[in-house]
Computed example of a mutant assay.
Amino acid sequence: MGGLRDVRAVVTDLDGTIIRADGTASEATVAACQALRAAGIPLVAATARTPAGIRALGGLAPLISIAVCCTGAIGYDPAADRYLWQERMPRETLAGLLDRLSAQLPEAEVAVYDGRAWFMTAAYRAVRGADHFGPRAVVERRWLPRVDACVAAVCHPDLGPPALIAALSAVGATPVAASFGQAGHRVVEVAPAGIDKASGVRRALAALDVPPECAVAFGDMPIDLPMFAAVGLGVAMADAHPEVLTAAGDSTGSVDEDGFAAWLRRERVIGAEA
């Protein structure tokens, strides 16, 4: 178990880690989460999803003790349907990001989330190719700086997230736009300064009174790397990004192989029957 002997909390990314490409969790995954609940081990979800995206998980959502949403900017209690915290991006930060994109990367498209709804350009919706969960509105780009944003999402018709992050850094957007992270295969998420999955996970574990060194985290994308550094052990899915596989202290099967449940059984965090 990579030196981690006392698992007192389980932290996991969602999409690509315990949620399959069709948006569902397998029976084995749900059973593993139920077994964690029965054992009194809290489950923390750390995700780019909003609270609406957590609610979309159906029966899995109430098994999550705390959802670290929007890559750390929002803490959400699914059982009580209440927000635990919300971080905001200063309007001047968002305005600076939008100005640099307009001047240097005009084909990049942006959506912003204010904690309740997404606001996006029509071009963003077309480039992303899929809608966000929950309320959303299509607006003209000039209206976006007026939103009190928790996070922003950036996509580009030709650049994938790693190339887009490099381009954003090259045009000087990084100091203005705070934290960047690859969220999925099309989108770069922009969070307030100092906010990432690590900050959110630490906050959630403190609320649960669990020492970080007694938590194990599962993930598959580079946006999960800060989270790995914030817990006792990081576990990569078999098909994870190469950087994640390198950084992880252990690995398990892919989401389609029920790797999450298999690891928890193998390490006896839950019973073999789960």
Rank of each mutant, 00 (worst) to 15 (best):
235 V>K: 13
26 S>K: 11
141 R>S: 01
26 S>G: 10
246 T>K: 14
211 P>T: 10
155 C>F: 08
87 E>H: 09
184 G>M: 00
274 A>W: 01
214 C>G: 13
157 P>C: 03
225 L>R: 05
87 E>K: 09
37 R>M: 03
203 R>Y: 14
194 G>A: 08
113 Y>M: 03
164 L>G: 07
199 S>K: 09
22 D>S: 06
135 P>E: 11
84 L>Y: 01
229 A>Q: 09
190 V>T: 01
20 R>I: 07
97 L>V: 05
66 I>T: 04
10 V>N: 00
156 H>S: 11
137 A>M: 11
198 A>C: 01
255 V>C: 13
1 M>L: 12
47 T>M: 09
207 A>I: 07
47 T>Q: 05
90 P>K: 03
66 I>E: 00
112 V>S: 00
75 G>E: 02
121 T>V: 04
261 A>L: 12
26 S>H: 11
251 S>E: 08
211 P>I: 05
240 A>F: 01
168 L>P: 06
7 V>I: 15
174 T>I: 08
221 M>R: 10
138 V>R: 01
157 P>V: 01
155 C>R: 10
214 C>V: 13
224 D>T: 00
58 G>Q: 12
7 V>H: 00
225 L>V: 04
45 A>D: 02
218 F>A: 08
29 T>C: 12
158 D>A: 15
167 A>H: 05
48 A>N: 03
253 G>L: 14
188 V>D: 07
81 D>F: 05
233 L>Y: 13
99 D>M: 12
43 L>E: 04
12 T>H: 04
210 V>W: 08
9 A>R: 06
18 I>P: 15
63 L>M: 02
26 S>D: 06
132 H>V: 15
238 A>I: 09
224 D>S: 00
92 E>W: 14
210 V>E: 08
137 A>I: 12
226 P>W: 11
249 G>S: 13
189 E>L: 06
58 G>H: 11
173 A>V: 05
190 V>P: 02
248 A>M: 06
78 P>C: 03
